[in-house]
Design a protein around this nucleic acid. Structure first.
Length: 218
DNA sequence: TAGGCCATCTGGTCCT
DNA sequence: AGGACCAGATGGCCTA
């Protein structure tokens, strides 16, 4: 189908659609309108189109010309709304990609939608785990401040450091998005005696949880 | 060339 | 009734 004719790039999740305020939404340049006219011609001329479109054409075959145009206008309006809805959805997806901890730039392939969602989920779970751990740590510090052994407890390397990387990092690896040069830990401050705060260096909060399987992209 | 990903169209369903 | 949402179908583009 040549329905992509109205956009500059089918790979973009935010195609350049012309806003036609008279229609009330994203709509259509001349090419798209021409496409619609061709579709109408297809419907009326023969069985070349899809079956559902043909049935729609048959359905209105006996109607008056005015009814036909009214139906087609309604269809265009509905299509336009649906296009706008998907456009908004893709914008939200782009917004999600922007806050995901993976390298962005022209040389890095954009995350697919499913990858974005899976990574986002894992990222949220990982942040929640980190927050819980931080709370515990803070509680330990303030609870044991009067005890002399408190300091040594903090500076001791956490046993979790030996655990495997968080599934988020594994996901990025599996997607080919995490290379050595792209490691994100440089964005974070490293404190002596503390684990690297970089999200990708975080151990799995619970290795036996179902989270592990969720990191597997497809 | 097959498979993945995507945009779009479309009809159905639900909600306001 | 009209709009939002959803899922299926279809075809185009890209990559391995």
């Amino acid at each position: 189908m040549d329905s992509d004719a109205g956009s500059t790039s089918s790979r973009s999740s935010s195609p350049d659609l012309i806003v036609d305020d008279s229609v009330g939404s994203f709509f259509s340049n001349k090419m798209f309108q021409q496409y619609c006219q061709e579709q109408r011609a297809d419907r009326e001329s023969g069985p070349a189109g899809r079956k559902d479109r043909c049935s729609e054409g048959d359905q209105h075959q006996n109607g008056s010309e005015g009814d036909k145009e009214e139906t087609q206008d309604l269809r265009l309006k509905v299509n336009s709304r649906e296009r706008k809805r998907m456009h908004d959805l893709n914008q939200a997806m782009d917004g999600l990609r922007e806050v995901m901890p993976y390298a962005q730039g022209p040389s890095v392939r954009k995350l697919s939608k499913i990858s974005t969602l899976l990574l986002a989920r894992n990222y949220i779970l990982m942040l929640s785990g980190s927050l819980d751990e931080m709370k515990k740590l803070v509680g330990d510090v303030y609870g044991a401040q009067s005890r002399p052994s408190a300091h040594s407890r903090i500076s001791a390397p956490p046993p979790s450091l030996s655990l495997p990387l968080h599934p988020l990092a594994q996901s990025l690896h599996s997607l080919g998005l995490l290379k050595d040069s792209l490691h994100l830990s440089s964005c974070y401050r490293h404190f002596p005696g503390m684990p690297c705060p970089c999200p990708l260096c975080q151990p799995m909060p619970n290795p036996s949880s179902s989270l592990h399987s969720l990191a597997m992209i497809k």
